[in-house]
């Protein structure tokens, strides 16, 4: 599954009706943010305002929550989200080199998106696939036992898919 956002050229504001399954209290803040991010790939300012209106939690606190947890993103990601694991097992088995290779191949730094909008590169603290270290996820797919060569193969398979 790819992030649905990249095709949307305009920022979408979520309809408050879709919140109705959640109680309008502070307990719903994180689930609501998660739902919005699942749908749009990130949290726009207008959507943070909607969550604030619905839950009666001040916007400043909503912003505080959105910036505290590493899962949340305030800017639009690329079509595919690459998350390179930087857990302990991956670290001792060369995750740093894998990350450097991604940066070199994509021409971007961590937390940046390629100019064609295809890939966003992030690091993640342990995917729990330590036995397959070094590991990473692209969108919902997990890949293990990475080498520079397998990274190249995987990236070209995504690019080919795009050209088709």
């Amino acid at each position: 599954m790819s992030n649905p956002t990249s095709q949307d050229s305009e920022e979408k504001t979520v309809g408050i009706d879709s919140f109705r399954t959640f109680t309008s209290s502070s307990a719903s803040v994180i689930p609501l943010l998660q739902q919005i991010q699942n749908r749009y790939g990130y949290l726009s300012e207008s959507n943070l305002e909607r969550v604030s209106e619905y839950t009666h939690v001040p916007l400043s606190s909503i912003y505080g929550v959105a910036t505290f947890y590493s899962q949340f993103r305030l800017s639009r990601p690329g079509k595919h989200l690459i998350r390179v694991c930087q857990g302990t097992a991956c670290h001792v088995l060369g995750a740093g080199k894998i990350m450097a290779h991604f940066q070199e191949q994509l021409g971007i730094e961590e937390n940046e998106t390629t100019t064609d909008g295809l890939f966003t590169l992030e690091s993640v603290r342990c995917l729990g696939c330590c036995s397959l270290a070094p590991a990473m996820m692209i969108d919902d797919e997990t890949y293990g036992r990475l080498t520079r060569d397998t990274v190249d193969e995987i990236l070209s398979s995504y690019r080919e898919q795009e050209e088709r």
């Binding site: 209290s25 502070s26 307990a27 719903s28 803040v29 994180i30 689930p31 943010l33 998660q34 839950t55 939690v57 606190s61 505080g64 929550v65 505290f68 947890y69 590493s70 899962q71 949340f72 603290r125």
Partner: peptide, 24 residues
Amino acid sequence: KAGAGAFVCGEETALIASIEGRRG
């Protein structure tokens, strides 16, 4: 409840804050 990515939420009172919808 799905966590949202914060190591400190393994701590009990931070975890509770997170379920209550606050910073952990």
